[in-house]
Design a protein around this nucleic acid. Structure first.
Length: 566
RNA sequence: GCCCCUGUAGUGAAGUGGAUAUCACAACGGUCUUCGAAACCGUUAUCCCAGGUUCGAGUCCUGGCGGGGGCACCA
């Protein structure tokens, strides 16, 4: 990356002036006429040097100019002491050609090369419908997983399905009470899922209303936790199977694949044992329960084993952590949940560190916000929460209206691209106000906008090829004038990817892709690419090709597929 | 009450301590007999308040005010 080269050169110059260890920035000026790169090095170092920033800047510039760095056209000083660099157009043009050569590999990083990365995301409650909240987790999680792969790491994706809880026992109670025949009478998978969803809601209601139900649910909970063979367990297993199959099908429709599952039931057992084996040093009894006193870490107390002797979510997550590290020995363990669980995990990690410091040191928690609906927080227990499949289907209908006769996979690519992009374009961790009218747009800052840009560019390339013109490789006749914004934007892809990986923040990619698509569309608007009289026609095709490559790769990193047409 | 997150055009969002704060939607006005108008070009409008640190603050610190979340046996 040119910015790294520049950083190295500036560093050397500063050191030679006796100013080593200066932390300076290299950035793209907001106004492109200022140059391609700018540094604040002179301003930052001014104090230590005992000089005024502009005077120091002049010395630095003189030293840099003496080096005659290849690729730099002009160096200038501006404002309070910025040093601006304008690059030779050839730098950008070489980069465009490099993209042509590297294609989907362009921008690949090596920061985690040779390291094992474990990513856990999209963990469902197997007895609750897969709703819009899961969609958010999946969008963020899948993108982080792909960023991890692009960082050079060897990645394992897992999910942590919840298959044991009081809520599940309530649902099983209703299924058993209705009779398993009712489930079997459902003719389609969809019907079965809807029925099981209803059971979950109904179970919660009945449990609140009646003491006898409470008693029966209690027995069922016992059975499930102990794994006692019998009718209840087989009903449970069947329901779990149906829900898990659905989870696999919906997440694969969304573009996710999981290498393995760790179920809450197994994590619960492991966690329970861990807590019991660290009773005196880490955990303690209190009011019949077993707790971890988070106050010692400036956190708060959490219950790990409840007074019935069963592991709570805390112990389950502790067990999960233990299983993750014993099975996969990751150098980095990323997990994604919604942000309401932040303080829960702070406590779990604090306790886990005392068992094994590596568990804490190698774990990174990334969060996403909640979907709010007209300002109201959505809860699946209250019903009325949009299901993931409903949202996708509604959008798919709209896609079909805009473009008839699209293959199913293209319809899905656009519909799912719209939802995922709406989620990923904002920094994760903040709530997203979901307004069906505007949130899932096909225009403006949207997934389909990016897809459209690439598809249209691709269509130009096809037409050019039919007329015997292909993007040039290596030996090119480049245009006379200055490099266009699009050419400059393309070259930024690697640094954006690096930032996204450093922060595990997909939205940097999203923002960049929008800017790049805008730059391309602006260029497209006033450039006749297929101008056979233009000597640089094949270079212009290379720019077009590089744009489709970068957008396609960027969308892939966001977990969004590219339709063949739209 | 304590702790964490958060406050940027009418709306939804970007913005590694830097120069003239960016993008979209909405509104208004243009551009398809021409490589795909899900596009392009143009106009209007913004950093919650008060202190502080700094050569420089939307960004860091302190204190308010508003929003969200967490705080003992749900996940």
């Amino acid at each position: 990356m040119f910015s790294d080269l520049l950083r190295g050169e500036i560093d050397t110059v500063l050191s030679s002036m006796g100013l080593s260890g200066v932390v300076f920035a290299i950035e793209h000026p907001t106004v492109i006429t200022h140059g391609d790169f700018a540094t604040n090095a002179a301003m930052v170092a001014a104090k230590a040097a005992g000089k005024n920033p502009r005077a120091l800047a002049e010395e630095i510039v003189a030293a840099l100019e003496a080096k005659k760095i290849v690729g730099i056209r002009t160096i200038s000083i501006a404002g309070p002491g910025f040093i601006n660099f304008t690059l030779d157009d050839s730098v950008f043009r070489d980069e465009v050609l490099r993209i042509g050569e590297e294609g989907m590999h362009y921008g690949e990083q090596h920061s985690w090369k040779g390291k094992k990365i474990l990513v856990e995301h999209s963990s469902p409650n197997l007895f609750k419908p897969f709703h819009i909240g899961h969609l958010m987790n999946n969008a963020v999680g899948e993108s982080i997983k792909r960023l991890a792969e692009f960082s050079g790491g060897s990645v394992t994706a897992i999910s942590f399905p919840s298959d044991i809880s009081l809520g599940i026992a309530k649902a099983v109670y209703v299924v058993a009470h209705d009779g398993i025949e009712k489930l079997h009478a459902c003719t389609s998978e969809k019907e079965k899922l809807a029925y099981l969803g209803d059971c979950y809601v109904k179970g919660t209601q009945l449990y609140e209303e009646s003491d006898t139900v409470k008693e029966e649910v209690r027995t069922i909970t016992e059975t499930l936790f102990n794994g006692t063979q019998g009718e209840i367990l087989s009903i449970f297993e069947e329901c779990k199977r149906i829900n898990l199959d659905y989870f696999v099908s919906i997440t694969s429709r969304l573009g996710s694949h999981f290498d393995a599952y760790i179920f809450e039931s197994e994590a619960g057992k492991v966690g329970e044992e861990l807590v019991h084996s660290h009773m005196d040093d880490i955990f303690k009894k209190s009011e019949g329960a077993i707790i971890y006193e988070g106050e010692q870490d400036d956190l708060h107390t959490r219950v790990f084993i409840n007074k019935d002797g069963r592991p709570t979510y805390e112990a389950k997550d502790l067990g999960l952590l233990s299983l993750k590290f014993s099975r996969y020995e990751p150098d980095l363990s990323l997990f994604i949940t919604d942000h309401e669980q932040t303080s829960h995990f702070d406590v779990v990690i604090a306790a886990a560190k005392k068992i094994d410091p590596v568990w804490g040191a190698h774990s990174v928690h990334r969060t996403h916000g909640r979907m709010t609906f007209k300002g109201q927080k959505m809860s699946s227990r209250l019903g009325g929460v949009p299901l993931a499949s409903d949202i996708i289907d509604t959008l798919a209908d709209e896609v079909r209206e805009r473009a008839q006769d699209l293959p199913v996979e293209d319809v899905d690519a656009v519909a799912i691209g719209a939802v995922k992009f709406a989620i990923l374009r904002a920094a994760a961790g903040k709530n997203i106000n979901f307004d069906p009218e505007t949130s899932l747009s096909f225009e403006g800052d949207s997934g389909p906008y990016l897809q459209y840009t690439a598809v249209r560019a691709h269509s130009v390339l096809r037409k050019a090829e039919a007329e015997g013109y292909t993007p040039c490789v290596g030996d090119c006749t480049c245009p006379e004038g200055e490099a266009a914004l699009i050419e400059k934007m393309l070259a930024r892809f690697p640094e954006v990817v690096r930032l996204a990986i450093e922060e595990w923040a997909p939205h940097h990619i999203a923002t960049y892709l929008l800017e790049t698509a805008q730059a391309f569309n602006g260029w497209y608007g006033n450039t006749k690419i297929l101008d056979t009289g233009n000597p640089s026609i094949r270079y212009n095709l290379a720019v077009t090709k590089a744009t489709t490559d970068v957008i396609t790769r960027g969308l892939q990193l966001l977990g969004i597929a590219m339709p063949s047409k739209m």
